[in-house]
């Protein structure tokens, strides 16, 4: 890693850590190794969204050409969102691709991701299944995203109905994560989900 990148990352980390942002904006970073190539990001689910109350973790990898190339950022906490892959956590966000500018920082990246959580862009989806549900069945989308937040990001909203369906599949020997994923993709239709899994 070049000197520019190292100096800058040190400053950036300080910027986020010392600003006590976690209390104000709900973002935080955690350094994983000494040469600053791998960083953990945390975003608190924004209020008035299905992600409220959850704490989402992100894996941040810093490329050699940083800050002239964008950092590689993806969710490590599973999240139900049109612009994030429900399987891999890959994020579709312009500033992480062609709209990256060297003057952007980890702080602005995390804030942009937080903004994306508030206002999804289903027209430019990363996960087509989620985007379709978001547009066609907004109520189901909201409930599903909330369920995922509780399940994977320590959220507080309980959904006994969904949990019962998941338990039903679990009783049939399906792993919990797969059960949640398949039910979510099939709009919580237990029959279609079982057909999908066992055919």
């Amino acid at each position: 890693m070049s000197n520019i990148a190292f100096n800058r990352l040190q400053r950036e980390c300080k910027e986020v850590v010392t600003n006590s942002e976690i209390s104000e904006t709900g973002i935080m970073i955690e350094i994983l190794n000494e040469n600053l190539t791998e960083i953990k990001g945390h975003i608190r689910g924004p209020p008035d969204t299905p992600y409220a109350g959850g704490m989402f973790d992100l894996d941040i990898k810093i490329p050699d050409q940083y800050p002239f190339s964008p950092p590689n950022v993806k969710f490590s906490t599973k999240i139900w969102h049109p612009n994030v892959s429900s399987q891999t956590g890959v994020i579709c966000l312009d500033i992480l691709k062609d709209q990256w500018a060297a003057s952007l920082t980890l702080r602005t990246v995390l804030l942009s991701i937080q903004a994306l959580m508030c206002t999804p862009e289903p027209k430019d989806p990363q996960d087509a299944v989620v985007a379709k549900q978001y547009m066609e069945k907004p109520a189901v989308f909201k409930a599903t995203a909330e369920y995922w937040t509780t399940k994977f990001a320590k959220g507080a909203v309980k959904n006994a109905g969904y949990q019962a369906l998941v338990d039903k599949l679990k009783d049939m020997g399906v792993r919990e994560e797969e059960a949640v994923s398949v039910l979510s993709c099939n709009n919580w239709d237990i029959n279609r989900s079982t057909v999908y899994i066992f055919s």
């Binding site: 520019i4 050409q65 002239f68 709209q99 500018a101 060297a102 003057s103 602005t108």
Partner: peptide, 29 residues
């Protein structure tokens, strides 16, 4: 921006094959 950063920016763009369309380093500029 400092000259050194400008130079790194130009090098980085050139390595992507971009020459006539090198943008300012400020975001959204």
């Amino acid at each position: 921006f400092c000259e050194h950063c400008w130079k790194s920016h130009v090098e980085s763009r050139l390595s992507e094959g971009v020459a006539s369309r090198i943008e300012c380093m400020e975001s959204e500029c």
